[in-house]
Design a protein around this nucleic acid. Structure first.
Lengths: 141, 141
DNA sequence: CCTTGTCGTTTACACCTGTAAACATTACTT
DNA sequence: AAGTAATGTTTACAGGTGTAAACGACAAGG
């Protein structure tokens, strides 16, 4: 099924492919070798796993392959974000996003976009978010 | 070292302990058993790992233990958030936070707090965030 | 044609994670 | 005092992850 989970090491490979595709394993390795210090073999393993999972597509060019992404970076980031936010009480999601923004450097335009989003969300935002935790698993009670 | 990484299953246990402490393994199990369907044995294993990692402290009460957290939930959420955001181009952090907010339900007060934070951040926000990616790993170039 | 390099595939292996049974010890019950 | 229940500790085991060597097949060079 939707077993498209991408590990951190695999994501390094994907980022290269998202940036440039189609691309050969050699070229992926060239981009990553300084950053990661991986051996070619390591890159090959990760590519293999990504292909098997179906998040990389291959196109045969002669005897070799060229790789392209089968999922977008956004999709996968969204998935990872959900994995994170689903681990905390719905009531704490707001604070969590706050902390993230607080600790991040974002551009003026990003801030403006966020501002607009906030204006829009204000129209439908609840006074208080319902806590959906099991009793005993958070302090909202 | 600072090897305080908490896995999703371990976090389930921590959330119970953050909510109520000191607490016994029995009571942790009681809170989780409906949600997770874990056997007592599973809970015990996770508690053991958390204690070994030093994120749970124990206090002997007679022959038994009572557990308390040695780290705050905030700390651990911050760590997980960083793990996520560090996997994407600095330039895309803004959009990522945007997506998260877009997909989340947050309260009016949360939105107000975010608004204030944005006002504050606007004073020092760069026109454009510098991309720190390795060349070939993102499309900012 | 034989050698060598290249690239995909297989195999390797240790550590982490989810899930749990088995075991040891002690406290409680009869 | 002996059996039983509760609880911490050990052991188990499959699947994921990071890291990489070994293998096999083909292409290019000599």
């Amino acid at each position: 099924m939707n077993d498209k989970h991408i590990s951190p090491a695999e994501r390094e490979v994907m980022r290269v492919v998202w940036s440039t595709h189609p691309i050969t394993s050699k070229d992926i390795f060239e981009v990553l070798k300084d950053k990661t210090e991986w051996k070619m073999a390591t890159t090959k393993t990760l590519i293999g796993r990504l292909v098997k999972k179906g998040v990389l597509t291959t196109e045969a060019v002669g005897r070799r392959f060229e790789y392209s992404p089968a999922v977008t970076e956004e999709e996968t980031i969204k998935e990872s974000s959900n994995d994170l936010l689903n681990q905390i009480c719905t009531k704490k999601v707001g604070e969590t996003i706050y902390m993230m923004l607080e600790d991040s450097t974002v551009s003026v335009d990003d801030l403006k976009a966020l501002e607009r989003l906030i204006q829009k969300k204000k129209q439908t935002a609840p006074k208080v978010v319902a806590c959906d935790c099991v009793i005993g698993q958070c302090t909202c009670e």
